[in-house]
């Protein structure tokens, strides 16, 4: 395929992406629906200009690879061609996390109910994305699966609605649970294992310019067959964990310190160990959302 460009309107950013990989085009079209613009509008203000292209070289013939560029920077090693769409998703995350300083950006899922949002910062393997996917399909609004964009000196979080990245066993679970959802093709054997992206539902996209007020932060830990265990975190602990999950803490400097310490003062913080998602949902709703003003 010849190189082609398309635009993605993902509030608050507009991306222009150049690619010569059919798989990228197909998946982007499927995942982003109306937000995918097949034709580049030259009059549009574009925030980031990215490209994901086939690697040249002899390797190209027997094991084709994809390379991701933001400006002339290449943050990742090339990946196998069948992982190209996942790579683009990670590349978009990398781009925002390493350039945007108008928000304090925490590596975290963000879901909202009744205008109140809960952050779920967690390392890979904690089941965060499965939890995000479950909530997003059970009456909660998805703001983001990967990054909470907090307006400095406030407790407001801005949505950055993107597909949810599911791994390994969660792939089949998600396909069974959410039969109406749209899924990308599977990127096999990435450094995270098998990976699939699930499109956000249309209501999440429709409200992607509506901020929410953060009322809680929950650090989830998936434990197979475990009963739900809830630990309240003291502020010092919660703050350190939140700061460690903040992409741009160092560049933001004082402003991120003030934002996060102030935020921690006004919200509830928990660590939970769980296996039953319905139990978790009830806890979040009854003990955090309904009890906070």
């Amino acid at each position: 395929m010849k190189k082609r460009s398309f635009q993605l309107f993902l509030s608050p950013f507009v991306f222009q992406i150049q690619t010569d990989i059919e798989l990228v085009l197909e998946n982007a079209r499927l995942m982003y629906g109306e937000r995918f613009k097949e034709r580049v509008d030259d009059e549009q203000f574009v925030d980031y200009y990215l490209s994901i292209v086939k690697s040249s070289g002899v390797r190209h013939f027997y094991k084709p690879q994809a390379r991701f560029f933001c400006d002339s920077r290449e943050p990742f090693k090339p990946l196998r061609l069948n992982q190209a769409f996942a790579m683009l998703e990670w590349g978009m995350n990398w781009t925002i996390a390493s350039h945007e300083l108008q928000y304090c950006i925490v590596h975290s899922g963000v879901l909202e109910k009744d205008g109140k949002a809960i952050l779920f910062p967690a390392p890979p393997g904690s089941g965060k994305s499965t939890l995000t996917a479950f909530l997003a399909n059970n009456g909660w609004r998805l703001l983001s699966d990967e990054m909470a964009m907090i307006l400095p000196q406030t407790n407001q979080v801005i949505p950055f609605v993107r597909p949810i990245c599911l791994k390994n066993q969660s792939i089949q679970l998600a396909k069974n649970w959410f039969s109406g959802a749209k899924f990308s093709s599977i990127a096999r054997d990435t450094h995270k294992g098998d990976v699939i992206h699930m499109a956000p539902n249309s209501s999440a996209f429709k409200q992607n310019q509506v901020p929410a007020k953060i009322v809680g932060v929950v650090f989830p830990q998936y434990r197979p067959n475990a009963e739900l265990a809830i630990y309240q975190l003291d502020m010092a602990d919660a703050f350190m964990q939140l700061a460690q999950n903040t992409f741009n803490f160092r560049v933001l400097g004082n402003s991120s310190f003030t934002t996060l310490t102030q935020l921690i003062e006004t919200i509830q913080s928990f660590e939970i160990h769980y296996s039953d998602l319905e139990e978790v949902e009830a806890f979040l709703r009854e003990d955090i959302i309904e009890r906070s003003s």
Partner: peptide, 17 residues
Amino acid sequence: MQLHPFSDQSGLSIYNP
């Protein structure tokens, strides 16, 4: 130095810019 004592008395954080 930025210093923040947490109101729940759990400790204080200091940030060195």
